[in-house]
Design a protein around this nucleic acid. Structure first.
Lengths: 126, 126
DNA sequence: TCCATAATACAACATTTATTGAATTATTGA
DNA sequence: TCAATAATTCAATAAATGTTGTATTATGGA
């Protein structure tokens, strides 16, 4: 079940900050691609050719924002993407869309907008 | 109709960079709230208490990323949010989820993930 | 135990981004 | 036309981020 309401401005900001670096966006997309299996830090570094020190810096930012989770496996650290947070984020951005009159959203930009466009009318707040 | 495929890494990056500033996130959310009506620059600056010079700097970044559109009205510049781009962005992030086996996504993080979780199975690529 | 490996923490430096004030462009109304 | 307003551009400064090398912590295997 999706729970819209966990998100607030500081969290949204830290998510956007986290994904605003090319390195971190690469890391997150790689982990999304890997799915539940995840990857240990060394594998990520090798795949993206990022030096260990620098990778630690970026993984810390992603972890702090909640975009990735980390689990210790012996001397390895396994990282996994948290896609659910992205879903919450979009819900947050669209929550007050058109001042509560989302039927107006048809007129916004090139395509439909608001939560209807994301999930369909029946799925909002589901 | 949503068209998944307009998004690429540089565009995704510029969107995240755009929304990684508190001022720009405030501006974008305010414009989403306003809907198709939009707001002129001066109104935005007054509402958020951002000096004109600084606001121009941030509006330029949002416009360049495609998150807002701008239309001239006499000596005013009217800005509107482009929600559709956010929908595309999520589709981009989830496109290669779980290496093409999105049924694995149930195991990711706290909630469902991938496009199914965003739009429901029937809506993917619709 | 001892050495090699995985990963992170810290500090110095380099780079990028944000903010401010002054000047510029363009439009409206008297 | 001329003064006032809306908004931007530009240049200088301030602040935040990213990167690198060295040192540290902790685990696993010989």
């Amino acid at each position: 079940m999706l729970y819209y309401g966990m998100m607030d401005k500081p969290i949204a900001l830290s998510i956007f900050e986290s994904l605003s670096s090319a390195t971190r966006l690469d890391v997150f997309r790689l982990l999304v691609k890997k799915g539940p299996e995840g990857m240990v830090a060394g594998e990520i570094g090798a795949a993206l050719e990022v030096p260990p020190t620098n990778l630690s810096f970026h993984l810390k930012a992603l972890t702090h924002a909640g975009l990735v989770s980390v689990a210790q496996e012996g001397r390895y650290q396994r990282y996994r993407a948290n896609m659910a947070l992205m879903v919450d984020l979009i819900a947050y951005l669209t929550a007050e869309c058109c001042a509560g009159h989302p039927e107006q959203c048809a007129g916004m930009a090139e395509a439909g907008a608001c939560l209807d466009a994301v999930c369909g009318p029946a799925r909002a707040m589901q």
